[in-house]
Simulated assay, not measured.
Amino acid sequence: MGGFFSAQAANAAEEGESAVTAVHSSGEWTQYWQSHSQTNKLMVIDFSATWCGPCRFMEPAFRAMADQYTEAVFLKIDVDELPDVSRQWKVQAMPTFVLVRGGQEVGRIVGARKDELEKQIKGLLAM
Rank of each mutant, 00 (worst) to 15 (best):
F5V: 14
V106H: 01
P54F: 04
M65H: 02
M94F: 09
A10W: 09
Q34D: 15
L82K: 07
V98Q: 08
P54I: 05
S26N: 14
S86K: 06
E59G: 09
L124I: 09
D80H: 02
D115H: 13
S35E: 14
M127S: 13
Y32A: 10
N40P: 01
I109Y: 01
T50Q: 11
F97K: 03
V20G: 00
S37N: 12
G3N: 15
D84I: 07
S26Y: 12
V106T: 08
F74D: 06
A12K: 13
A49I: 04
I45S: 03
K76F: 03
Q34E: 14
M58Y: 04
F4A: 10
F4N: 05
F4Y: 14
R63D: 13
E105M: 12
T21L: 11
G103T: 08
Y32M: 10
T30M: 13
D80G: 09
P95M: 05
A19C: 09
K122M: 12
A7F: 11
D84P: 01
K122G: 08
L125M: 08
P54S: 08
W33M: 04
S37K: 15
K76G: 00
V100H: 00
D67V: 06
Q8P: 06
P83V: 03
V73N: 11
S86C: 06
R108K: 11
R63F: 01
S86D: 01
A49L: 01
R56K: 15
K90R: 15
G2L: 09
Q68G: 10
A19G: 14
W33Q: 08
T70P: 05
E28M: 09
K114L: 09
Q88W: 00
S48Q: 12
V91N: 01
S25M: 05
D67W: 06
G3S: 14
G123I: 07
E28L: 09
S25G: 05
D46Q: 02
D80Y: 00
Q92F: 06
D46P: 03
A12T: 07
R63I: 06
G103K: 07
V23G: 04
Q104T: 14
Q88G: 03
N11Y: 11
D84F: 06
W33Y: 10
E15A: 15
C52K: 07
G111A: 05
G16K: 00
G27A: 12
